[in-house]
Design a protein around this nucleic acid. Structure first.
Lengths: 340, 340
DNA sequence: TTGTATGCGTTATCAC
DNA sequence: GTGATAACGCATACAA
């Protein structure tokens, strides 16, 4: 059985108060006493019980990270960075998957599960903020929204400028002389934020180039998966005239699209150029390597963790909108050149 | 402020005992009483405090999953399955990364951090079991080892038959007529289990075919990453005569190797056939699609979670050795054929 | 079937 | 600077 504070106190013939002081690194403890207690702690192999401590202090040292699917490379890379950033400031990270389930997303936000086990939550939602507001009315715990970019100040955000990122990707294709540019990743449901914003940036870039946004060249994708990218690209290739470029709303969609184009007997980028968004490592080693818009996940993670930590300290902090930088990375899937 | 059991009791004019019974779904409570309490619960928006409950029951409902790196596809796919399997039996999953840090691995095992927050731990170690035994001497909590295959019964295992899997992969290359078969993934440190076992299977298959295990055709890889696979393959291609096939100890190594072979101006599989282990989704969409040995991660996750749940119930259970099935999947990187 | 009282292990409030 | 003790919120032994 694990030793408790009291066991140590009896063993060292001091009060629990003193032992607690030593354990917590409290200053007003005489050196001799500290040593005596330290010895008892080691002899009994005492470790503080974090649950009991939590009940007293109200802090668990646990953060929840909620993503649609942890095995989507963008999210697993983000999780890696979040876990590391959290560890640096003394938090551990529990991961929950919504599995694209709208109800589950709302349940988690509502704290239906076991919310009070976590000091705060980092949430990468599919739904737009408007939907989340009602649900989170009770404001059960500190919350940071990841990925969406709004300015209304109802929540803390660490976001990407989705409109600009999509605009940059599309512009890149336009600059290469492509004119029939397709898009994969628009959502069937209007209430998902990311696809809406990326479609907006896509259209904007086309319009600026004097091109119309052709609905026939836009495909929805429910899951931003390789399979969805494959299916959408295969479908796009039946359009005539065929598109000469595809802007995919995620790298994973792009990986599927490239494979579909190849399976149709066409070349990337000669016949169809492909660009994604995310800059997952997979795209750097793929054939052809994938052009993309790089999102700075270490920065996103760092900022999100710093912000949630600050908000846990002071729940009355004004909300903050942090926008992570992004940058276009041209690789073989648009340039035809191998990386230097 | 969140409502407590006592608040609800006062509000409903009953005792805390009764409220607790209702909340816990205890049977012996009259329908009328149940309804009255239920009403009070809803009016106060009461949710049980899991921390307090934990202090009482000793159960947190939390499992820890420890992997080297969560963004390695094999582990993120495993994590996905573990989280889902855990959710089905009422557990949530905290994820920790060892980052290939041997000391950190031991710290986590020792429960240096905040071990008592978790009911059990699923551990995918780099180190061999022998090393782990001393460290885990104190046996702080239920533990399942993932990936390694031993028979000594000191821990519960959910494992892969690494020797056989490596043997199967190598045999596949031999059956295709390849004779100069290289390997990537052997470890510089002898105490890592997986590379040792895979090297054993590799050698065994070669020997059975009457071929010698040529040390010049074996490369180490510290991290089973794309970058390591790339570097190792590039180095192998300078051997003369050049290898005509490469067996990579992980799919991620293989992805890097394929890219290196391509960058050297050679073809896969015509010049060099490549096979991996893991069957990550990335390999199914890659060009060429990657031949591999498929490991059944849903099964592994399911079994591991079931076992840890059982062990949490009864810590005195005898240890059990569960071996997950594996199967060879031939794709373009060895056959040259497109999947049907 | 329901109410009362105790304790889980820690921190924090009071005294000394 | 240190000791005794009350609370944190819940579950349960015991009583009614």
């Amino acid at each position: 059985m694990a030793a408790t504070l009291r066991d140590v106190a009896e063993h060292a013939k001091v009060s629990v108060r003193t032992v607690s002081n030593v354990v917590s690194g409290y200053t007003h403890v005489s050196p001799g006493m500290r040593e005596r207690v330290q010895l008892a702690i080691e002899e009994l192999d005492y470790r503080p019980n974090p649950v009991a401590r939590t009940l007293r202090t109200g802090r668990t040292g646990l953060l929840a990270l909620v993503v649609p699917e942890i095995d989507v490379p963008y999210f697993s890379e983000l999780a890696r960075d979040v876990i590391n950033a959290a560890a640096r400031v003394g938090y551990q990270v529990m991961i929950d998957q919504t599995g694209h389930d709208h109800d589950r997303e709302q349940d988690l936000l509502r704290g239906a599960d076991r919310s009070m086990l976590f000091d705060g939550m980092l949430f990468a939602p599919l739904a737009t903020e408007d939907e989340l507001v009602d649900v989170n009315a009770s404001q059960t715990m500190p919350l940071i929204l990841l990925g969406e970019h709004t300015f209304d100040g109802r929540f803390d955000h660490v976001a990407i400028d989705n409109v600009q990122a999509a605009h940059d990707a599309t512009s890149h294709l336009l600059q290469l002389g492509r004119r029939r540019i397709a898009a994969i990743g628009a959502q069937p449901k209007e209430h998902y934020a990311t696809p809406l914003q990326r479609t907006e940036g896509f259209s904007k870039a086309l319009n600026e180039a004097g091109l119309a946004h052709e609905p026939a060249l836009v495909r929805t994708a429910a899951h931003y998966s390789r399979a969805d990218g494959y299916a959408a690209a295969a479908s796009l290739l039946t359009e005539s005239p065929r598109p000469d470029a595809v802007f995919c709303y995620s790298d994973l969609l792009a990986m599927g699209a490239v494979r579909a184009i190849f399976d149709a007997g066409l070349r990337v980028p000669e016949d169809v150029a492909v660009i994604g968004i995310d800059d997952i490592e997979e795209g750097r080693y793929a054939r052809p390597s994938l052009s993309t818009v790089s999102l700075d996940t270490p920065y996103i993670a760092e900022q999100a963790v710093a912000r949630i930590a600050a908000r846990i300290e002071d729940p009355d902090l004004p909300t903050k909108e942090i926008v992570a930088p992004h940058s276009l990375i041209a690789r073989e899937s648009t340039s035809g050149k191998r990386p230097e």
